[in-house]
Design a protein around this nucleic acid. Sequence first.
DNA 1: GCGTGTATATCGCCG
DNA 2: CGGCGATGTACACGC
Lengths: 252, 252
Amino acid sequence: MQAAEAAGMIAAALARRNVVVIVATCTVEYDGRARSRLGEGDRVIIVKSDGTVLVHRPYGSLPVNYQPEGSAVSVRAEGDTLVITAVRPRPSERLTIRVRRIAHLVVAELRDDAEFELWGSEDELRDAIARNPELLLGERLKPVEVEAKLGRVGFADLLMVDEAGNYVVVEVKREEAGVDAVFQLKRYVGYVQRALGGRVRGILAAPSITRRALALLSKEGLEFRRIDPKAAVKAKSGLLGFIGGDEEQSGA
Amino acid sequence: MQAAEAAGMIAAALARRNVVVIVATCTVEYDGRARSRLGEGDRVIIVKSDGTVLVHRPYGSLPVNYQPEGSAVSVRAEGDTLVITAVRPRPSERLTIRVRRIAHLVVAELRDDAEFELWGSEDELRDAIARNPELLLGERLKPVEVEAKLGRVGFADLLMVDEAGNYVVVEVKREEAGVDAVFQLKRYVGYVQRALGGRVRGILAAPSITRRALALLSKEGLEFRRIDPKAAVKAKSGLLGFIGGDEEQSGA
DNA sequence: GCGTGTATATCGCCG
DNA sequence: CGGCGATGTACACGC
């Protein structure tokens, strides 16, 4: 296929808000936040009508080069070469794809209004703990605030009060907690101590914790509570079940 | 196209280590670290021979669902439906794509041995500073260690010694530094002070710094040095130029 | 494989 | 739009 003809097809497709998929031999250059150059090779190129451009090599899950949503995409022929450029102003960056040979050119109008549902995020885990601290933390705690702003230090996932009346800062991690999570919790506990006074406890709630993080946690007088994310989701489903939440299949 | 026929083509293509691109109406389910469900809609599906699977909606730069390199991909027909599953053991997770209608099916053998070159990463910036601290930090510093392991606290980008003989911890950010970078630097300086004693300085080297981070930095007695990433890259090119580095075009 | 940190991270939320 | 934290983050490197 002639480069000029391809350029016309692609421009028209994008104008109709269609998606373009190209399998082609190309080179790629990027200049912006950093700078990169990729020599000639065969790749899959996706251009979406929202300005997203992706260049995929035959291996790896991440695109080797890309330009996110909102880029201005233009297509032109330079002799036998098809040149696709995607530019965005802030941050100022430019992606240039030079296509020598097109193996496949697919234009498609995609209709996709389906909702994407995700369970098991950190937000869900946090809310589940707030609703049922006894089940998930093994202790009767009274929620004071979710995403409590702690001055310039940051946000505590949960601020609660224990049965003795002490403030308890809870830092939730959806996956294994590392040293960073401990430092984060330490900062928050320190802030609450200075701001509200009295004894302040810190709980790190996560499915697991690295050895180093646990050692550091103990040294700092902070506590770890093992959380099962599945249990948390179930706890939520259980609650919602009574007020009309969707029934979840519990299959293996 | 019949689902069974498509399944055969795809399986054969993957066996030949080809890449498969499908534009299709499908539903997607994921179960693993979290759990997700995506109703019926039109998407672009990429299956690479290394086990990478990507599902792209018509908008957005990230795949709505995916499975990274190393997944076991299997394809089968269930009546009129083509079912693609990608499973990996650790972490245990499974992606299931159910294809109702195939608009395009592309199989391609991609040859791509080109090198990907990237300039302006944080590693490059760090090494450039280590090689030329006077030019980039405006001060005569002697490098002691790159990526210096600081016990359980983490790694300092650079550990150096100033002309007065004080240790200097340098934290490098290739973009604007936020409060987190300051806390990180504070931790490192504290550790070096305890471990090696004496006065220990901390320098945050970045193109810019947020207002909050600067306030915190000053309060902690730490220092900020503005770094121009382009200058750092140039410093490197300059050095390499003499020993045979590639000539870079300086076009606008 | 675990632990740690970067990324042209991207994305969403909130002031 | 800046600032900040989460992500099914993925990925590379060191131990």
